[in-house]
Amino acid sequence: MEQARAEGNAIIDSHREALDKVFEDHKAEALRQSETRIKAETTNAKLALNQALAKSQLEIKRKQGKIQQELKDKIFEEAQDLIHAFMKTEAYDDFLIRCIRSAVRFAGTDPVTVYINLSDEKKKTALEDATQVHLSVSAEDFIGGVRSVIRSRNILIDNSFQTQLKDQYDKFIFEGGDGIG
């Protein structure tokens, strides 16, 4: 009996050891699978977060660009108002005279055609008297200033406010702190 009991206990111990080993293997496999699942879910969560972040950054940049464009347009509208106010001063007349004289000096002996803006047509006689240059009134509105053409050299001297405003508008970029610009 004792021998049978000892054999039975040995079989039970052996079976228990086998079950413990199977249990430990199963536990280790379950742990590996859960770690793999956690890594995969973490990766998916990071990817989703990065996508949401990129989408929101794109939306912020889009809104920022729209606001900057609105501000830029407003700035240049104000600049145009200031130009129109300047055009009513004596300093503007002096500016026109300097531009006309500069174009004539640059042309030298070559014939030059000097155009003033249609809005300055009333000043034509006074400008011609001041510069001794025959002026033409442009059919195209270029806001103000002077355009001069030296046809023999295919040269356009463009001192028009329209061109200068457009050049500045095209170059204008907002710059500032916090990565704006």
Rank of each mutant, 00 (worst) to 15 (best):
H15A: 15
E17Y: 12
A18P: 02
V22Q: 06
F23G: 11
D25C: 12
D25V: 15
K27V: 15
A30G: 09
R32M: 13
E35D: 08
E35M: 11
T36P: 00
R37N: 09
I38T: 08
A40M: 09
T42V: 07
N44M: 10
K46Q: 10
A48P: 00
L49K: 11
L53W: 09
K55W: 06
S56Y: 07
L58T: 13
E59S: 12
I60A: 11
I60N: 02
K61W: 01
Q64N: 11
G65P: 00
I67C: 01
Q68G: 10
Q69M: 13
D73A: 13
F76P: 05
E77D: 12
Q80D: 06
Q80A: 11
H84N: 14
F86Y: 07
M87V: 06
K88Y: 03
E90M: 03
D94F: 03
D94V: 07
F95S: 01
L96G: 02
R98D: 05
C99K: 02
R101A: 04
R101T: 02
S102G: 00
V104R: 09
F106A: 05
G108Y: 01
V112E: 00
T113Y: 04
Y115L: 10
I116K: 00
D120E: 05
D120L: 05
K123M: 11
A130F: 04
T131C: 08
T131Y: 00
T131A: 02
Q132H: 06
Q132F: 04
V133Q: 02
V133G: 00
